[in-house]
Amino acid sequence: MQNKSEFGGDFAKFINGLAGTVACMSREAGESARERTREWIAGLDFVSREEFDAVKEMAAKAREEADSLKARVAALESALATKGAGEAE
């Protein structure tokens, strides 16, 4: 029969082993969850920051060009209206 000190020592070893196993399982579960999350996000149709910035820059240039064309059309319409008013007199 084991005495109380041997039982306590064996119990402490058991608890330490159990704690190590639980810590390892927890770490593996976290790594697995992170990997699944990475795979899930990779499967989504996200654009990279570089692609986003390139499209944003192209849109800004297109807006500037559209504004410039609007100003030119307005100037041409104004000139045409002035010319038409001068001929009507």
Rank of each mutant, 00 (worst) to 15 (best):
S26D: 15
D53S: 00
E31I: 06
N3L: 07
A29H: 07
E51W: 01
I15T: 10
R38P: 01
E65K: 02
G84P: 01
A33I: 10
G20E: 14
F46K: 00
R38N: 12
M58W: 03
T21Y: 10
A62S: 05
V73W: 08
G8E: 14
V47I: 10
G43M: 11
A75F: 06
K70R: 11
G30T: 15
E31F: 08
A71G: 02
D10E: 12
A19H: 06
A88V: 10
R34M: 10
E31Y: 04
E39T: 04
G20M: 07
K4F: 08
E77L: 01
D67V: 02
D53N: 01
D53P: 00
E57C: 03
A62C: 03
K83W: 02
K70F: 09
A29K: 07
D45S: 12
R27S: 15
G9M: 08
S48K: 06
S5L: 09
K4R: 15
E65Y: 01
A59L: 07
D45Q: 13
D67I: 05
A81T: 00
E89Q: 04
L76V: 03
S26N: 10
A66Q: 09
R36C: 07
L80H: 05
A54V: 04
F46Y: 04
A60Q: 08
G84Q: 11
L76W: 08
F46D: 01
T82P: 02
A60V: 06
E50F: 04
N3G: 12
G86M: 13
G17E: 12
A23R: 09
M25D: 10
A75T: 07
G9N: 12
T21E: 15
